[in-house]
């Protein structure tokens, strides 16, 4: 399931996770979001950017509960909870947000 950005083809696996992390641009993130039927706004970008920063530092996409715990600490309890996350990414924050962020599927995420 590849993506098209500015006439360029970006390779992705059958679930839509891009193959090369280095291919990612915010523009591509937007294209993946459209495929996921997610309308990106500041709140969603906040999560996507957090995931990218986490991956940069630790070389893994965090598990959902780790993501939520970390957001609770940095952005407060009104954003660091399950309900808020699933409102933003109905099919699972780790799965959908990681895909949009251009990261591999989180370890232990089935």
């Amino acid at each position: 399931m590849d993506y098209e950005v500015n006439g360029q083809t970006i390779e992705a696996d059958e679930e839509g996770y891009i193959t090369n992390l280095g291919d990612w641009t915010p523009e591509l993130g937007g294209v993946i979001a459209v495929a996921e039927e997610i309308e990106m706004d500041d709140e969603r970008w906040e999560v996507v950017n957090f995931l990218r920063d986490y991956y940069d530092e630790y070389q893994i996409a965090p598990a959902v509960r780790v993501l939520i715990k970390a957001l609770k600490k940095t952005m407060g309890p009104e954003k660091g909870n399950n309900k808020y996350m699933y409102e933003l990414f109905p099919y699972g924050p780790a799965k959908q947000a990681c895909k949009i962020a251009g990261l591999p599927k989180p370890t232990g995420c089935v």
Partner: peptide
């Protein structure tokens, strides 16, 4: 892949 940075994430888990 250099996975050594991941050891520093273990505390989050």
């Amino acid at each position: 892949k250099n996975f050594s940075p991941t050891f520093r994430a273990l505390g989050d888990y």
